[in-house]
Simulated scan of single mutants.
Amino acid sequence: MADLTSHRLTALRAHLGALDAVLITAPYQLRAFCGAEVSAGTLLLTAQGSFLLLDPRYQEAVTAPAQIEIKPYANAQQRLQVLGSALEGARHIGVYAQALTLTEINTLSPGGEFSFVPMDGVLDELTSLLNQTEIGSLQRAEAVTRRALEAAFAALRPGISEREIRQVLLSVIERESEGPAFAPIVAFGARTALPHAHPSSATLQSGDLVTIDAGAVIDGLHADLTETRMFGATQGQDSPAQHLLSVVRGALDAARLATRAGVTAADIDEAARALVREAGLDAQTLRGIGHALGYQTHQPPILREHAQDRVQVGQVLALEPGIYLPGVGGVRLEEMVVVGEVGALPIAEWRVPALLEVGHES
């Protein structure tokens, strides 16, 4: 997808007016900005050009945008020499502070030659704004994830363990995508009250709530979906669990209806939270109901109380309200939506003409 990242790279270079260079080392940002699918590398932008420093073993596997010059290095010492040459005369260097360690700072600038300037907000925003092809890849990742979830729910039977269901999930995700976006969550019964339960040897009983949270990766884009269902429940049966499912479903619908370009992350959170509060369950929910998706599973904007980040056209959000009752059980429902000017579409329904109808431009 190297040719699809040039718009993002151009936007990043616009910040060189206030900086002498921009240095990127986080693997997911390397993929977002230059299409490099590597576990290690360095993207350097200066007034003189754009350079991708790579271990030569990666060189044949990487196709970078035409405006990026690939500079191989044989070892760590040579990497520093190549960087030093490219940074000659530079002073102020923009970095992603969360990815730059103290060891790297001391190695790159042992005598304090460089001033490292955090630009996390800029990089987070640029990686969260997806073009149509990237949204299409994320749509495919969502479809794989949904097939994995359906396979997992179809495999439920009394006595099966959470770990066995995890294997069903992973078999679909690993067969149909680049792999899992994160370690899947599978929880039965009272363990559904744990928002991030690691699959255990716990076995399924009739009447249990079942929560499954998983995601697939395609073209570096991470999907994230959660379903909670009752196992073995009588159709139409009225129960506390059914009430929780109803409240959370209403909260998810409210969050989707509140989502459009320009609203704050807190506005979306409050739309969902109002229904949970009305049900008297606000103390049993988390202090946020979602996040943006893309080259990472969780990235800003984070949809939580008091967050003033404004969502934008081209972002894909995971909306995931939940209610958790310790010792009893919990319900979380999560869907992915594409932000438009006047609304949001579930990504499963996304297509370019439909997105244009809600104000998207490529």
Rank of each mutant, 00 (worst) to 15 (best):
V247Q: 02
V62D: 12
T211Q: 14
L100Y: 07
G290C: 12
P65G: 06
L333E: 14
I268H: 05
A254L: 04
V117M: 14
G250H: 09
A271S: 13
T203S: 14
A279S: 10
E335C: 03
P56D: 04
V358S: 07
T63H: 14
T226H: 02
P118E: 13
R260G: 00
H306F: 11
A187N: 06
A66V: 05
K71S: 00
L52Y: 05
M230F: 08
P300G: 09
G112Y: 13
A233D: 03
R91T: 13
R287E: 08
A152H: 13
R13L: 03
E134P: 01
F188W: 06
V22G: 03
M1Y: 09
L319H: 04
E37D: 11
A148C: 12
E357S: 15
V311G: 03
V331I: 12
L19M: 08
S137M: 13
T264E: 08
L225Y: 09
A183C: 01
Y73G: 00
V313Q: 07
Y58T: 00
G329M: 09
R260I: 00
Q312M: 14
L126F: 03
G189P: 03
L149N: 07
E335P: 01
A307G: 12
C34S: 12
D120F: 09
I165M: 00
L129A: 08
M336Q: 13
D124F: 00
F231Y: 15
I93M: 06
Q312K: 15
I289T: 07
R332I: 05
A66N: 01
R31G: 04
L53P: 02
L169W: 12
R166G: 00
G111W: 07
V339A: 02
A47K: 15
R229F: 11
R57C: 04
V328F: 14
A254P: 10
P27S: 08
Q139A: 04
G159Q: 07
D213L: 14
Q78F: 10
G94A: 15
E341V: 08
E349T: 13
